[in-house]
Design a protein around this nucleic acid. Structure first.
Length: 153
DNA sequence: GCCAACGTTGGC
DNA sequence: GCCAACGTTGGC
């Protein structure tokens, strides 16, 4: 069992969108490291912390689950998509994605400032200076702290 | 809107 | 294979 944090710009997609969709293919990841996490390390059933960026308050809004193994991202072949990649072929796809499924919206939204103030979360990959990866691993310990913060009064 | 940090590109 | 230039991300 692995744990992940997925970032999404709230202008594009939010936890409420995922709640409505129930499940969505996580298209558009165009970073090799993030791709490799999906391709090599994600398993159906892994937990995903759903992180909102770009909005007024960045932070973790809810929980999702990996709902598929990785497979080629169809948008890389779509000339009309902004994620189109002319160097990708169906025989040799360059980019993959996974499906994620809605699990729940957290009772407490966990803002980045709350996370930064929590000693146990100091080393979280997603909080490191200059980190721009949209998909990062989360340790079991970090995940459990987040659960506590999400459910505390 | 600013800007630091970073990944990618492309010339050499 | 180096590295400057560029574009983008994302917190503030």
């Amino acid at each position: 069992m692995n744990y992940w944090l997925f970032k999404t710009d709230t202008e594009d997609y939010t936890i409420d969108d995922l709640k409505q969709d129930k499940k969505t293919p996580w298209t558009g990841v165009r970073n090799y490291q993030a791709r490799n996490f999906m391709r090599d390390h994600m398993k159906k059933g892994d937990f995903v912390l759903f992180y909102h960026s770009g909005g007024t308050t960045p932070g973790i809004a809810g929980l999702a689950k990996i709902a598929s193994a990785s497979y080629p991202d169809p948008t890389q072949f779509d000339k009309k998509s902004k994620y189109f990649d002319e160097k990708a072929t169906k025989e040799k796809p360059r980019w993959v994605l996974v499906d994620i499924a809605y699990a729940k919206k957290f009772k407490n939204f966990i803002s980045i400032s709350v996370m930064r103030n929590k000693r146990e979360l100091q080393d979280m990959w997603a909080l490191r200076i200059g980190n721009r990866l949209s998909i990062t691993p989360v340790t079991k310990e970090e995940f459990e702290i987040i659960q506590l913060l999400a459910n505390s009064q």
